[in-house]
Structure formats: C-alpha cells, structure tokens
Design a protein around this nucleic acid. Structure first.
Lengths: 205, 205
DNA sequence: TATAATATACCCACTACTACGGATTTTCTC
DNA sequence: GAGAAAATCCGTAGTAGTGGGTATATTATA
C-alpha cells in the first residue's frame, strides 16, 4: 500500500515512518510538512492512502481533504489529529474520510486503521466513536457555524474590529454585528474571551 | 543511556521509541503520558535522560522539570516542545535544562541533542537559538509580567469582567483597569483578542 | 416552486472597556 | 533609611461592543 504522510512536526513524521516501515505490506512513498507540498505530490503520483494531520500551517487538513477528494478521488484518507472537539470532528467526518484517529491513540490503533481502510472499511478510533455517539444523544445544540460566520470569527480572532471586518467584506457594520450575535448564540459563549477560546479549541485560529 | 519519555500523544511516544531503538547505545526504559506517572517512575528507578513534552494534562512540563531537578538532580533533561514563544522558552530554559528542541525539528536533531547532552553539553535546536539571540538583540521590553499582573491576566482569560476581578481580589475596579493597561503595554497587545492569544502562547490559560 | 437556511441590514438603549491623564501607598532591595 | 518597583486608587470623555428587537434579499434544497 502506497502511503503519503502529512504533518508539520518532523519528529512525528519520522516516528510514524519508522513504525510503518516495520510492516512489509506498507510503503511510505513520500511525506510533507504542508498541505501544499502534499497536493503537488498527489497530482503527480499515485497515492493509495493519505495520512494527514489537521493542524497545518497555511492550508489546514480540512482544506487538504477537500482538494484531494477532487484531484484524486480514489485516494483513501486517514485523519490523524489531536482535536477531539465535537464541532471540528463532525466537520471533518462530513467530508467523507476513511479514518479518524487521535494523536494520543497508540501506533496499534494506527495500524488497525490502515488495515481496515485497506479493506474498504471506515475506521474511527474509540474516543471519536464516543464523541459521535454522545453528540447523537444530545443533539439539540450542535448546530455548526456557517461559512460566513466562520469567516467572520476568524477575522475577529485576527483582532479586526467590526468596522474593519465590514470594510473588508464590503458589507455593513450592522451585518457584522448580526453575524457576531449569531456566532455568540451558536457557540454559547457570551464574552469575547470565551469566543476566542472556542476558536482555539476548534482550530479557527 | 537509560532514557525515559513523557508525552501525552501515544503515537509520538511510539514513534520516538521506534527511532531511538535503532540506536544500540540508547535504551528507552520507560514512558508515560502524564508528569505524575513519570515522577513515580523516576523516584524508583535510575533515569539518565528524561525527554519530555511541555504540554501535558494536569501538571505541565515546567512543573515536571522543577520536581525532577529536586528528586533526581543527576537526570539530564531534554524538552521536546512545540512552543517557540520567547517568554515561555526563556521561562523553561531558566530552569537549567540540558536541551530544548522543537517538534518540527527532525529526528536527527533529537539524536544530536542526545549525543551532546550525553557528553555533558547543552543542546538547543537552531530555531531556539535564533529566538534567544533575537531576544538579546531586541531586549527592550522583555520584562515579564509581575505576579499580580499574571494573576489578573488569568482572571481576564477566565471571562471575568473588571468588576468581577475587583470584587474577587478585594481591590478597586480602577486598580484592575490600571493593571490591565500595564499588561497591554508590556505584552504589546492592544486588543483583548491579542491578549488572549498571548496568554495562550505563553500557556497562561 | 415552496420552504428553509443563510446573508444581509437597521434601530435603540446600555455597559464595559479604552485612552488620556495623575497620584499615593506598600513592598522590596541595597 | 533612601530609592526603586509594584500595587493601589481616581477623573473624565469617548467608543466599541452587547442585547434586545425586526425585516428583507439571496441561495440551497427538497
């Protein structure tokens, strides 16, 4: 199985490679520390399995998944992330990836995931399964932010004022205020500080 | 060399172990995903080198370093962190550790660090060196926050208003405002958002 | 094409924080 | 005990954001 790895932490990349190389059936044919480099490679080479982190500089793992789905639909994808926040996990799973495991799972979990995915199955680590089931049991709240809201939240987190954001998006300051209100409501935060913490937890910053 | 590893991400732990096992001179005699477990081990076994992450649940890497220095002063320590923020790096180096490398350094850097530390030297990764030198070149405002300021910053980050903080610390709201002003000045942030990001980067949250 | 979801926009009253300013007391250090 | 650093306190004016509404245009989606 031809595998490509993406993670911005070289040491983790090295470690995973070292683990995978012990398995004769697996072959790590390349690695990258940014989504951009990974995409270049995937355009020009056949990659059967992409194992990628979510946290990446510039383009994040979610964007990478979306693009890989387009340019190489046959490539299987396993997300290897440290994030176990409901919103974010759901967002990622929605893209239709083949596996999701956490960085605090062991390498055995990773190998199991690879085996399962290779057999055409979908593999979610135990903790992720718990999260999903839990969110099904308490479904009320979990409404996602819209793209626009997410965009605005990111700008807030970049220290722009409502006025700045309005100018930048060519919309009225009133509109920004409304979005802001909706964001607060949806995220159940009622202070800017809480909002920024939410943004951190969901990797919007 | 008897090595003990601490990181809350099992997969990284596995990866590093796999890398180190290729070196005959090195022996990983144990690992832990929390500082507490690591301490227990170090109390009862001789550990020559401790390689630890900074971000850990409960007790963080800094606290771990301080305790290990006490209970086993001969144990060498290498910090393997993703943090490259000046204040925090300085804070950690101040404890007198033997090596500091970043997670986006390669495994070769880690091996170099181990070799150097084993020979009694101190090893800082290239990026860390840059940070230190840079901060020496622009020393102007590296003045740390005072304890009181740090305390107030934490309360701000906990979503308390100035009023709340004043009540809680039995001081006037004016005083809180003054502290807040000073914090903004010292951290060179001029928005609440920037301040929270500073607090995150410096692990005050 | 009907319906829902999203994005857009506005009003008004209120409050928390900012940006200037200055000043005094407590605590630490030499 | 002098001097510095830190912590305390205050005024006044202005602004950005909050919280409560309501309403229309646009875009998906069934």
């Amino acid at each position: 199985m031809k595998i490509f790895l993406v993670d911005d932490h070289a040491i983790l990349l090295d470690g995973i490679k070292s683990i995978l190389e012990r398995e004769p059936a697996l072959k790590v044919i390349g690695e990258a520390n940014t989504a951009e480099i990974a995409l270049e490679f995937i355009k020009q080479n056949e990659v059967e399995l992409l194992i990628t982190d979510f946290n990446l500089p510039e383009m994040d793992g979610l964007a990478l998944v979306r693009l890989v789905k387009k340019i190489s639909p046959k490539t299987k994808i396993i997300m290897l992330s440290m994030h176990d926040e409901v919103h974010l996990v759901k967002e990622i799973l929605k893209e239709g990836i083949d596996g999701y495991i956490l960085k605090n799972d062991s390498h055995k979990e990773l190998l199991s995931a690879i085996t399962a995915v290779n057999a055409g199955k979908i593999y979610l680590s135990n903790d992720i399964n718990k999260i999903i089931i839990n969110s099904l049991q308490f479904p009320d709240e979990e409404r996602m932010l819209t793209d626009r809201e997410r965009e605005i939240l990111k700008l807030i987190a970049k220290e722009f004022s409502n006025r700045d954001i309005a100018d930048q998006l060519f919309i009225s300051e009133r509109t920004v205020e409304t979005h802001r209100k909706n964001i607060f409501r949806k995220t159940k935060t009622n202070s800017l500080v809480g909002l920024i913490k939410f943004a951190y937890a969901n990797n919007l910053i």
